[in-house]
């Protein structure tokens, strides 16, 4: 269940809309498919922004059209390239299998029905050098645009267009106000905000898209709030130089 608070209604009323002329003329990318190749590479890349560790192994669970046609579209190479932070317009993407071997990263591809998700979706399980792991579900929603819909067990909405703050917190009145107060005290402009919660009073998460990179200090302030269990900050793909 999600409750949308659209702070900035001017974003065309729909965050999935085309806004820039360069969404239509561009991006420069390695073919053949904006959704199955470039989008897949972006999902991989953004996953490593979320799980920011040296990766030793990775499992890809491909759903729907990704499962059906991944070989022909190079979706496998693109996903691997992404988790190695090779950008969607880098011709090294073609050599992802060779490069992943050189770097000694173990990988596997599986087919899996992820249920009610976009047809171009993948569940990625990343394993870090310190024996930690993270699972991420991402979809390529068209024209190379992507959406991360789950991190671990938490429903999220991260599209990589904006830097994104994600909290895990107990659903109590006032949490959202407290977080926004901290952000505005630092002059941070909120582009978009959304709350996800399972049940009233249970665990919830707050997704805040912001225009700039949040300093450690701000993240600490938010982390110190009583209700907050966890805070995560993800750079936008633009800030990472991907788009």
């Amino acid at each position: 269940m999600s409750i949308g608070i659209d702070v900035n209604a001017f974003r065309n009323g729909n965050s999935m809309n085309f806004n820039s002329i360069f969404d239509v003329i561009g991006p420069v990318m390695i073919g053949p498919s904006s959704s199955h190749t470039a989008g897949a590479a972006k999902i991989g890349y953004l996953s490593t922004q979320i799980f920011d560790k040296q990766i030793t192994a990775v499992e890809f669970y491909l759903h729907g059209s990704f499962a059906k046609t991944y070989k022909g579209h190079g979706t496998d190479r693109a996903l691997l390239a992404g988790i190695m932070r090779i950008k969607p317009d880098d011709s090294k993407l073609r050599k992802a299998f060779e490069i992943v071997q050189e770097r000694g990263i173990e990988y596997n591809f599986y087919k899996e029905d992820l249920g009610d998700v976009h047809p171009n979706s993948v569940r990625i399980v990343l394993f870090g050098i310190d024996d930690t792991s993270e699972q991420i579900i991402g979809s390529s929603v068209g024209g190379g645009r992507i959406l991360i819909s789950r991190i671990g067990q938490t429903d999220v909405e991260v599209d990589g267009d904006y830097a994104t703050l994600i909290t895990k917190h107990f659903d109590k009145p006032g949490v959202i106000a407290k977080v926004s107060t901290i952000l505005s005290a630092y002059g941070i402009n909120i582009a978009f905000m959304k709350v996800f919660r399972q049940l009233r009073g249970a665990q919830a998460s707050l997704i805040v898209q912001v225009d700039e990179i949040l300093k450690e200090e701000i993240l600490n302030k938010i982390q110190e709030l009583d209700e907050i269990q966890e805070v995560k900050f993800i750079n936008s793909l633009r800030q990472a130089g991907v788009i």
């Binding site: 420069v28 990318m29 390695i30 053949p32």
Partner: peptide
């Protein structure tokens, strides 16, 4: 070029 995983400009799409 696109079909052989070369570099192109999606305009509006890769296809």
């Amino acid at each position: 070029l696109n079909c052989s995983m070369g570099r192109i400009v999606a305009s509006p799409t890769a296809g």
